[in-house]
Design a protein around this nucleic acid. Structure first.
Lengths: 358, 358
DNA sequence: CTGTTAGCGCCTTCAG
DNA sequence: CTGAAGGCGCTAACAG
């Protein structure tokens, strides 16, 4: 394996110069840089990342902390993060905290982080105090998606506004008996978002002077199958809601499934709306409030990169004006009405929804 | 940051002994090891992975090469791989080759691999010759999932048998007009699996002495939405198939959606079966041939770890007897019938697809 | 069983 | 603008 001194020899300069030239640093005469570049190319030279890390103390690796790797939101966020990192010469190390149980998770340890990453992105996972203390002690910059961490940049959506958009849509269609699927036990690992959505749901209903029966707020573990299971119970009773708002599209799909089993037609007998715009929602014609997960992922990565590179002699990526490395970036969401929501039958206005028969 | 010589000093031994004791290596007197462990704990010592890598030439990092991060198969495989690696003290570095275009992908480069990983797992992506040459040149062990690579261990399912299971099931129900969704242009990046499935489909039909109209074999890009789009064309004609076999569950979902739009009831007018057992398939009541992606992921990781650790002084994980580090492991698949039925016979209660209007 | 010592390959002051 | 030289923290012979 050819190393830096080979290049130095061929280029007829010192290793220090090679190091500087290759990193595009400061003051290296252009002609010198050219010679170095040629020598490097000719020798097929590739910097040893480990040696560089040991010497510099930086790894150009970012850890992605996440409670799940394979769920829609997380997989997409990770994908966007990885792409953005890569474009800037950084790499992504997976730190998956998923455990076997639904409401449990593994703990972040020194071993996972120490000397291994330059910074962290937490994807929608509330970090525990000890974990935050560890991160602080290791002096690792952290950007969080979805969960505010004091002193850290945050990328999020406006949960209240998102849920309100769904509720407003449903209410505008004339529904008054509206249920919610996606309440979550307090000990859930990924607890904040569910909590905020439920709270927003209650507030939005109350803004419309609407009541919710307790049994219309159903708890489940944020999977389609559990949502189906719980919704079945709901539909077993008569006089249930005419519309359901689900905390996520996957749960909405579960609800649709349970409704079909209960011989409820969608949207004639039941309107359903989710949140996300999951990649299958379009095909399932599920109304939803879309959130741009890829945008959230790359924004988080950009902000972190900016922090990591500022002060260095490298070109620091300039942040879009709407991002700031020490504050909150709120990515907009937007209502996507599809076929699963329609006017409540018997409501005053009997316009058909999107020209479709009810 | 405390380092190995601090520990050595406190424990009253040499750095070499600390190194050995901490790695659980060979011949260190138990009492000595204890003292070292105590010192390390007391000092909150954590080995520097970069220094260790530089000195040893090994990184304890495995690269996961994949064409997609967020699609169901890939996200799950990655999740399983990461878990298995982690259990053995290894880390996962993402090498996502996804490009913007559907049928294109980025190329593996020296920069992504060199001195960065000890080994590689290729998740269902056919590596190009140059890429394989690179991997060979870097002397990196490779385990492949889904695509055979000469000289490398392979984890796969039996594609032919899997497709045949679907066909047999459909034929056993009495169908004779059977279509296939999931043919793929030859230039597709992830071309082998689609090709094998289509071939197997044709052979299976021919084994049953059944013919397929050309128009019943539809091409699409292996997403639900494109499958829906293409299937719509199919259903626009009359006298089409009474059953569809889709190359993946996601495509099957697209087919179901298109069928609903075309007023075809499932399963009365059309039986649909996919391959995968996607996490939404149960809720969508989609018949399928299940493959265990997690098993494939962890098997691949186990095999690679075994190769990486054998010959070292560390405890090498013993491979389950069905795995071998230099051959092919075929993970079984199994038929999961859900709502497929005999043709033209239904009329019990006719559930529409998720309660959606036909 | 344990200690000594030379690197691993690069970055980064500090001189010049 | 460039070179010299001392680490970064650990591992791996080689002695003992």
């Amino acid at each position: 394996m050819t190393n830096i001194s080979d290049v130095a020899r061929v280029a007829g300069v010192s290793v220090a110069t090679v190091s500087r030239a290759l990193r595009g640093i400061s003051t290296v005469q252009e002609s010198t840089r050219q010679r170095v570049l040629e020598a490097a190319t000719q020798l097929d030279y590739v910097v040893s990342p480990t040696a560089a890390s040991l010497a510099s103390g930086r790894t150009r690796v970012v850890g992605i902390i996440t409670p799940f790797l394979s769920r829609w939101f997380f997989a997409n966020a990770i994908s966007a993060i990885e792409k953005t990192l890569r474009e800037h010469g950084f790499h992504a190390l997976l730190i998956d905290l998923e455990a076997t149980g639904t409401y449990d998770r593994r703990q972040l340890t020194t071993h996972m982080l120490s000397k291994r990453v330059d910074g962290l992105i937490a994807v929608n996972i509330p970090l525990r105090d000890e974990e935050l203390a560890l991160i602080t002690r290791l002096n690792l910059p952290l950007v969080s998606i979805g969960n505010p961490v004091p002193g850290c940049a945050l990328v999020q959506i406006d949960e209240a506004q998102t849920v309100t958009a769904a509720v407003d849509h449903i209410v505008a269609l004339g529904h008054e008996r509206i249920g919610y699927v996606g309440a979550v036990p307090a000990q859930a690992a990924h607890t904040l978002v569910p909590y905020r959505r439920l709270t927003a749901f209650r507030e939005a209903l109350s803004d419309h002077a609407l009541n919710v029966a307790d049994s219309w707020v159903v708890s489940c573990d944020w999977t389609a199958s559990d949502a189906a299971r719980q919704a079945r119970l709901l539909f077993a009773e008569t006089g249930g809601p005419t519309a359901i708002i689900a905390g996520s599209d996957e749960m909405a799909m579960g609800v649709m499934s349970a409704a079909a089993e209960a011989d409820l037609r969608i949207p004639e007998d039941l309107s359903v709306i989710g949140i996300d715009d999951h990649y299958l929602s379009e095909v399932l014609k599920l109304s939803t409030v879309r959130q741009d997960v890829l945008a959230q992922g790359s924004a988080a990565a950009m902000i972190l990169l900016h922090q990591l590179l500022e002060g260095s002699e490298e070109i620091t990526p300039s942040l879009p004006s709407n991002m700031s490395s020490d504050r909150v970036l709120t990515v907009p969401t937007d209502l996507v009405p599809r076929r699963t929501t329609a006017p409540h039958r018997g409501s005053v206005s009997s316009h058909s929804f999107l020209g479709l028969p009810h």
